[in-house]
Design a protein around this nucleic acid. Structure first.
Lengths: 335, 335
DNA sequence: CTGAAAGCGCTTACAG
DNA sequence: CTGAAAGCGCTTACAG
């Protein structure tokens, strides 16, 4: 910038004004500065600019998701990014890999780099470490799962409601023995979906059977094994509620290996690519991760725009998509 | 930091030394500084630190991909992130949405925020705008597609070779009329895959038939329409080579809608979720996007670690995965 | 081993 | 409308 000022024969202050699009500069000086910028290939250092700026705003936000390569979170990412972009803000994304330590490291790293706000899919069981950020005035929004030990905006899906819908759909098809396959019970979403599962059973007057539940399934492989095991039991389930996209994939794989995909009913939580093209099509309770991301970003930007009210919790609806796998009747019963 | 220094009764310099883990500080002073840091909830401002630091290093890299929600690029992202993380570096990712203007904006934005290096999946037809960065010494690596009008490291898949394998596989099954469904011909990968397609035909002594080629398919919907149209032609193809993951999905959908999935053979480029579970399984030429990301990051870090040799071009192998759809014989001929 | 001082690249009152 | 000067939060020679 110094070089630009020298070449244009003006002061640093004038260069700064021109570069920032300040109107109150004589046109001929503006032209000279622009020429000098072009000649020298000058580019402003935004970090230095942020440092000195009165509002200390960096026009960046941070996004911490579980895994950038899980399509669910990718869609969340995309939703966030679109809203951020519309606001002229850059989104920096990173994966926590479901490690609470990593979540915290990333939040610290983002904060230390001066992001204007943070959207987090929390995996730790305590977000209290972020109170400092809150006090400093950094807006925080949680997506997919609410924060714990911290008061902040959040957007989640109607996990329990969606799970209830899924299980009631299976009950309607005549099933009484419905397996539950869920993610780690430390996860908000996993707990909520199990709650929905149990509520639906309770409403139908069916007693819970722990032998039909499997928890802590973190990927499709573990889900595949769990289903294989369930099917070998003395009194196996006639239907499965798979509470997450990767689990659904693993379950379908297990069923197909045993040629049981036309015999055991399945309803999954979250949509899956090609779900409409396998035989039978996979019935799912769909949520809209893209909308989740958008909404989280909207909440964040409302804070950045000065909204200062109480914390908000948005609950997004889910939708049952009927495709075939969920409508299989238990053997010997009408559909 | 000033407050910490005051509270600990030491100078700013000493606080800086402690915070940076400098050994040469008396233990009791270290303790006092740490206490003060804890009491005040002090966190270092990394942007200010970078500004003043001699090496001007920010421990961040930027990643520009086409679309964070495309599973292919998500896997690239993950590969990059893992290597970066192992190097203690944070990855900032953003989508160009296949808009050259956006690619450039993002590259500028990252550069202005002082990233140590940049990994780019280029979509524009000219990366000359980055010569300035190169001259400034910012390492640049291109992934999936090589740069144009710029000399820099790149990692790509063996697109032409993979496409040749795919088409030869269909030729082996007895097909002579093989459709080509490709992405925009402005894309390096699309051009290379078409080249492989044509080479395979030429080697088999089959003349190209423009009526069997469709280009510019950007998503599964456009691919679905293109396939529908191809099948209605007077002399339709008996097999399809779908040159990209979303195109494969659209093609399969089109075939299933016409109950033609057991009659028309398909080999796709890129793997697709659940491809092994549809009927028939989808035969694909698989590339390893995760490895692509890792390799790109490795090239970048070798530059950051001081390697200063000529630009490198890494070509990653592809692998044919046989699952059923590619082994369907043309009607009236043996498989 | 520690501190006073300069300065990274920028913005912003403050005079003029 | 413009410039000289202070200073954002930090690091780093330089003395001591």
């Amino acid at each position: 910038m110094k070089d630009v000022a020298t070449l244009a024969g003006v002061s640093l202050a004038t260069v700064s004004r021109v570069v920032n699009g300040n109107d109150d500069v004589r046109p001929d000086l503006v032209a000279r500065v622009r020429d000098a910028v072009a000649v020298l290939g000058y580019r402003r250092d935004l970090t230095a600019s942020t440092l000195r700026r009165t509002d200390r705003t960096s026009s960046t936000i941070g996004l911490i998701i579980e895994d950038v390569s899980n399509p669910f979170f990718s869609a969340v990412h995309r939703g966030v990014e679109e809203v951020a972009r519309a606001n002229g803000v850059l989104t920096f994304a990173a994966s926590s890999d479901e490690e609470p330590v990593r979540e915290r490291e990333l939040a610290d790293a983002f904060a230390a780099r001066g992001v204007d706000g943070l959207i987090i899919v929390p995996c730790g069981s305590d977000q209290g470490y972020l109170v400092r950020e809150r006090e400093t005035g950094t807006p925080l929004v949680f997506a997919d799962r609410p924060p714990r030990f911290l008061d902040a905006d959040a957007v989640v899906a109607d996990n329990a409601g969606g799970a209830r819908d899924a299980v009631e759909h299976l009950l309607d098809a005549g099933h009484r023995r419905i397996g539950f396959l869920g993610d780690r019970p430390t996860l908000f979403t996993a707990v909520e979906r199990r709650r929905g599962y149990r509520e639906a059973l309770a409403l139908a007057g069916i007693e819970e059977d722990p032998a039909l539940e499997r928890h802590g399934l973190v990927d499709s492989d573990s889900a595949e094994s769990a289903v294989a095991e369930l099917l070998l039991a003395a009194d196996p389930p006639t239907a499965l509620f798979t509470a997450q996209n990767l689990i659904t994939i693993g379950a379908i794989r297990a069923l197909r290996k045993r040629a049981a995909q036309h015999r055991i009913a399945v309803v999954g939580f979250d949509d899956v690519t090609l779900a409409d093209m396998v035989e039978p099509g996979i019935t799912v309770v769909m949520q809209d991760p893209y909308a989740l991301g958008r909404r989280a970003a909207e909440l964040l930007f409302s804070r950045l725009d000065g909204f200062n009210g109480d914390s908000r919790l948005d609950v997004l609806p889910t939708e049952l998509v009927v495709r075939g796998s969920g409508e299989i009747a238990p053997i010997g019963e009408p559909a």
